[in-house]
Write a protein that binds this DNA or RNA. Structure first.
Lengths: 147, 147
DNA sequence: TATTGTTATACTCTATAACTATA
DNA sequence: TATAGTTATAGAGTATAACAATA
């Protein structure tokens, strides 16, 4: 397919993403329900997605300075969201992982999103709802093919 | 339609949004291309969407403290992204609007997103591309019906 | 010698309280 | 008396440089 068509698809996708952000969930609004500063939230999201990790690895991947990780992890530990432990295979290394309490926060957040969205789609007719259902499934499958 | 189905759709949509954020554009990555701190970016995005506005209105709508608006606007003005002017109808009021330079930044950002996405969809076959094109159009129309 | 994580320190971003000007 | 915006100030978040421990 010609490059031009791809650019058009890209345009349409940019618009769709911005519609979703505006109509369904604005990322900033979403973070408000996560009662921690943005960098802390990013660290626990990272740990949620990657599992236990070295502090320096988290810093590198998230673009957070290494010294800044110390107070961030300290506070997350004080809030009971993260656990810090030594790596027996390399005594220089300190690893971190999220706690059950953090997982509960994630579940609450998902429940909140689910409720908000369920409310928004209530405006649609049954017919539209089943169309939307199909569209989401196909779109998700398509997006999964990328990258 | 039963509430249960709506919750299922909500779940699917949450997953789709998180897929899009992961595979296409992570909001944090996206902001990196905007060479200003998050609050500054939020102010110019707000002004982009709402047009000229009172400083206190921006503060209220974005949840930024009123005193914090002063340095934010000062810096945006120094960077040539925002213009500040008096409201003749109420001499207490100071209004702000984005400049042409800010609009150029928005265009560059959109071009950047377009290129990244065009690269990602290059992996798809022509058939898949036209399917994606149709899906995006239908999904956008559906999302526009909400709210 | 290189790497992991921390401490020391300074800079930026932010909010609360108090102020001035205008309504 | 209420509202718009600013100034003064203190606290939180962050990064750079220098360090100790380990590889």
């Amino acid at each position: 397919m010609m490059t031009d068509s791809k650019k058009n698809i890209a345009d349409a996708l940019v618009l769709l993403i911005s519609s979703l952000n505006r109509k369904i969930f604005n990322p900033h609004e979403l973070m408000k329900n996560f009662p921690v500063p943005p960098s802390h939230a990013r660290v626990i999201f990272y740990l949620k997605g990657h599992g236990p990790a070295r502090i320096s690895q988290v810093a590198r991947d998230l673009g957070i300075s290494k010294p800044n990780m110390t107070p961030i992890i300290d506070k997350l530990i004080m809030e009971g969201l993260v656990r810090r432990y030594d790596d027996p295979s390399d005594r220089r290394v300190v690893k971190v992982e999220i706690t059950g309490r953090a997982n509960e926060l994630f579940e609450k957040r998902e429940e909140y999103m689910r409720e908000i969205i369920a409310g928004k789609v209530s405006l649609l007719s049954d017919e539209e709802l089943s169309e939307l259902d199909g569209l989401i499934a196909k779109m998700t499958a398509m997006i999964d093919k990328l990258n």
